[in-house]
Design a binder for these strands. Structure first.
Lengths: 334, 334
DNA sequence: ATGAAAGCGCTAACAG
DNA sequence: CTGTTAGCGCTTTCAT
């Protein structure tokens, strides 16, 4: 291993000068600068991170807490965070919690450890006490999901508005019996989409019927989507359209329809949410709400870095969504 | 921040003793042990990683190099690696290269930096010179993909045998005109699956026809899968079955068939590879080759850790695959 | 069984 | 503009 002292010796200067060149701070004469750079390349010197971090007490590392990576939904967000972090010369550590509280706690430790300077969290229940406490002590930004009634920085889309827009769209197609498939989890997104659905139904003078609303399990599994949709489709006066709060759930609804002999979109319109990659691989291709995933990630990272460097930046940012109309929705029959 | 000196003072012992308790090495009297533990909990002391790593010159960190996380294929492997790493008290850093060479290089730097003690690589071209050089200097294990003609440790399935098995299965269903959709990339898996296909065709006395083989782009995109399959299906004497080297490609083949008015599996059987989650969300559900992803990950991590700790462990391990028969394949018509 | 002390490689305050 | 030096928090001889 080759150290800063070796470089100093080789260049015929002191370690301080080398350090100054390395960090581009303090004043260095062009001549010294030259000599140091020569020595660095000659020796192929690489500063030791541990020494540096020990001394500086900063890691220049960002934590990214995701519940899972099996959902491609997260991949673009993560890419956005990583790209932005890199722009500001931060490294990233991707931590997959798999819904395991112990593991999540362990990752959070990294923050108090000083192993990371801050974290982007992608998986917060709508009122998670722990997170609120943590955010008081270390820089945190919540992405997509966030805690209500708290001033923790967050960036997401307007789920309420998006859901309302879906209902409006379906209504414009002639649908009046519109079902809803949500999830029993505690995410704001789930809640806001449900509220958006209900509010818009009322606004349009359509009844919000209990039997038109069903709930999948907490992690939006395909199977639970099938079950939830089946429930709606088997009720006496079945809905002619179903709005699902995730694409996987929507795919479940399409499967359920198929099992019951219903064609999509002929006899049933289905709308999803998220616009994951395979929404277009399906048959029919899914009408869904697209979130600006990459920008969501970039924005989170930027907010976090601001918070770390400036010690502030507790904003709330909402980005634009987009309703993408494809083949799983159609006019109601005459 | 609370340091080891604080603990020593609180416990009325020297820092050396505290360190001994922390690391469970050297001899410590029960009394001292007790006092130290008390002080640690009282002060809520957490050893500083930078100081420790600087001193020990080891990070107890494993690098995981994946090309992308948008492909759910990797998520189980990563989970396997992380779980096993954790068992041996190693942390992990997930690095997403996105096929960017510069980024890959940057991550590799972390190894020479000492920021990680070794790496599991999930994305190696079949003869990547760089990787061979790197593996000479730092512990590396290749998972799924690996360099041919090199003794770098790796774990994967027998792609050749799996492909042969698919062809045999299709043949047992009565198919003789069996097409192949591969990829132009440089992965051993792609090559071995193609070789397995060709070898088994010959073994069964079936002609290996150029016009029955098509290639998707390097990252198995859905669109390129459609294009490749369309090519096969439009040739004069079209195949009655197609073996695709990935599930996404198989989904593309099904789409292509649909566009040409061919039913699956009625008029065309399709087999995929990998058994990704959404292979069962499709209609029809995909017949495919399932890889033991989680065990693949666990095994890689174990091999890597052995290599790090023992300084050896350059084995080659092959795990069992499984042909999963679902609804996209059927007997040929009478 | 315990403690004193010497660094690990680096940065930054200070003195020149 | 440059060099000397004192740590950052920890582990690990080497004495005792």
């Amino acid at each position: 291993m080759i150290t800063i002292a070796d470089v100093a010796r080789e260049a015929g200067v002191s370690v301080a000068t080398v350090s100054r060149v390395l960090n581009k701070n303090g004043p260095v004469s062009p001549a010294a600068h030259e000599k140091v750079n020569l020595a660095i390349t000659k020796l192929n010197y690489q500063p030791n991170v541990w020494g540096r971090r020990l001394r500086r007490k900063e890691s220049r590392m960002l934590l990214i807490l995701v519940p899972t990576i099996s959902n491609p939904f997260y991949s673009s967000i993560v890419a956005g965070i990583e790209d932005e972090a890199r722009r500001y010369r931060f490294g990233t550590m991707l931590c997959i919690t798999n819904g395991d509280e112990g593991r999540e706690r362990e990752f959070i430790e990294l923050l108090f450890d000083g192993q990371a300077d801050g974290a982007v969290m992608l998986c917060v229940n709508k009122d998670d006490k722990d997170v609120k406490e943590i955010a008081d002590k270390v820089p945190i930004v919540q992405c997509c999901e966030f805690c209500k009634d708290s001033d923790i920085a967050h960036v997401s889309i307007d789920n309420f508005a998006a859901a309302a827009q879906v209902v409006r769209y379906l209504h414009s197609l002639g649908h009046e019996k519109i079902g809803f498939v949500g999830s029993v989890n505690q995410f704001v997104s789930s809640e806001d989409r449900r509220r958006g659905y209900e509010a818009e139904m009322e606004k349009l003078g359509l009844p919000v019927r209990k039997e038109y609303m069903a709930y999948a399990d907490r992690d939006y599994s395909f199977q639970s989507g099938i079950a939830a949709a089946r429930e709606l489709l088997q009720c006496p006066d079945r809905p002619t359209a179903i709005f699902c709060i995730s694409d996987v759930l929507a795919m479940g609804a399409i499967r359920a329809a198929g099992e019951l002999g219903l064609t999509v979109p002929g006899e049933l319109s289905v709308v999803g949410f998220d616009d994951v990659e395979y929404a277009t691989m399906m048959n029919p291709m899914l009408t869904t709400v697209s979130q600006p995933l990459y920008p969501l990630g970039k924005t989170s990272a930027r907010m976090l870095i601001e918070q770390i460097e400036a010690g502030e930046g507790k904003g709330k940012i909402f980005l634009e969504h987009k309703l993408v109309i494809r083949d799983s929705t159609a006019q109601t029959g005459p």
